[in-house]
C-alpha cells in the first residue's frame, strides 16, 4: 500500500500533469497546425520561441517563469494587485511549469501530423461547400488525431517527470507542490531514505509504463477504426 506522502505526491503529479496537458492542448494544436501548414513573417521566430523550453535547462525556465509570475513579476504583480491571485509556490505554478515544458513536445507532434496531411483533402472539403472552420473541425483535426494523441502522451510523460522548473517556480511544499520527482528528491536528501526513494522510483516506473500502455492501446484502437 502507498504511504500518505506517496499518495499525495502521486495524485498531485497526475492532477497537475493532466491539467497542464488539457490547458495547453488547444494552443499546442493551433501552434502545431499553424507552424506546419503556413509560412508567414515571424514563422522562424515563433518556431524558436515555441521550442525554446526543449533546449533551455529546466531551472532556467523555472527562474524565468518566476521572474514573470512571482509577486514582483511583470505578470504576477498586476494579477496579485488587481485580483489577489498568487501563482508562484502554488499548485497553479506546478501546472504552469508542467505545461511549459510539455508544450513544445505537443507542438512538434501536431506539426508533423499537420505537415503529413495531403492538402487536397481540405480542398475537396471546401469545394463541397464547407467553410474554413468546418474544414478544420471535420477534416484537418481528425486527420491530425494520431499526432495530437502522440503529443498528449509525450507531454504528459514529460510533465510527470518535471523537476527543475517546478521546484524553482512552485517550490517543494508537501501536499501542495511536492510532485513525485520532488518527493523522491526529498527522501534522497534524508538519512536512511533509500527504501522510500526506491518505492518512489518503482511508483514512477509503474506510472510511466501505464501511460505508455494506455497510449499504445488508444493508438491501436484508432488504427483499427481507420482500417474498419
Amino acid at each position: 500500500m502507498l504511504s500518505p506522502m506517496e499518495t499525495e505526491a502521486l495524485m498531485l503529479s497526475l492532477r497537475s500533469s493532466a491539467a497542464a496537458v488539457l490547458w495547453s492542448l488547444p494552443l499546442a494544436v493551433l501552434a502545431g497546425w499553424g507552424l506546419g501548414r503556413f509560412r508567414f513573417p515571424g514563422h522562424g521566430v515563433l518556431n524558436a520561441v515555441v521550442h525554446m523550453p526543449l533546449v533551455l535547462p529546466p531551472v532556467v525556465l523555472g527562474y524565468l517563469l518566476l521572474v514573470a509570475l512571482g509577486r514582483e513579476g511583470f505578470i504576477g504583480a498586476p494579477l496579485h494587485a488587481l485580483f489577489g491571485i498568487r501563482i508562484a509556490f502554488t499548485g497553479t505554478a506546478v501546472v504552469i511549469a508542467c505545461a511549459v515544458v510539455g508544450f513544445p513536445l505537443m507542438v512538434r507532434a501536431v506539426r508533423q501530423s499537420a505537415e503529413a496531411i495531403d492538402p487536397r483533402y481540405e480542398q475537396a472539403a471546401r469545394s463541397l461547400g464547407a467553410s474554413d472552420l468546418k474544414v478544420f473541425l471535420t477534416v484537418t483535426l481528425p486527420l491530425m488525431a494520431p499526432g495530437i494523441l502522440a503529443g498528449i502522451t509525450l507531454a504528459f510523460a514529460r510533465a510527470v517527470g518535471e523537476f527543475g522548473a517546478t521546484i524553482t517556480l512552485a517550490g517543494n511544499i508537501p501536499s501542495r507542490t511536492q510532485t513525485l520527482p520532488l518527493a523522491l528528491y526529498t527522501v534522497t536528501q534524508s538519512p536512511g531514505g533509500e527504501d522510500a526513494a526506491m518505492r518512489f522510483c518503482i511508483l514512477s516506473l509503474a506510472l510511466a509504463g501505464l501511460a505508455l500502455m494506455a497510449s499504445e492501446a488508444v493508438s491501436r484502437r484508432m488504427q483499427a477504426e481507420a482500417r474498419a
Binding site: D118, R120, A124, S127, L128, L143, A145
Partner: peptide
C-alpha cells in the same frame, strides 16, 4: 470567391475520400 461559394466540384486522381 472562396471554393465553398463557387459551386465547382472536384474529383482528384486518387479519389481522396475522407479516411476517417
Amino acid at each position: 470567391l472562396h471554393p465553398a461559394d463557387r459551386r465547382v466540384g472536384v474529383v482528384f486522381q486518387e479519389g481522396l475520400l475522407f479516411p476517417h
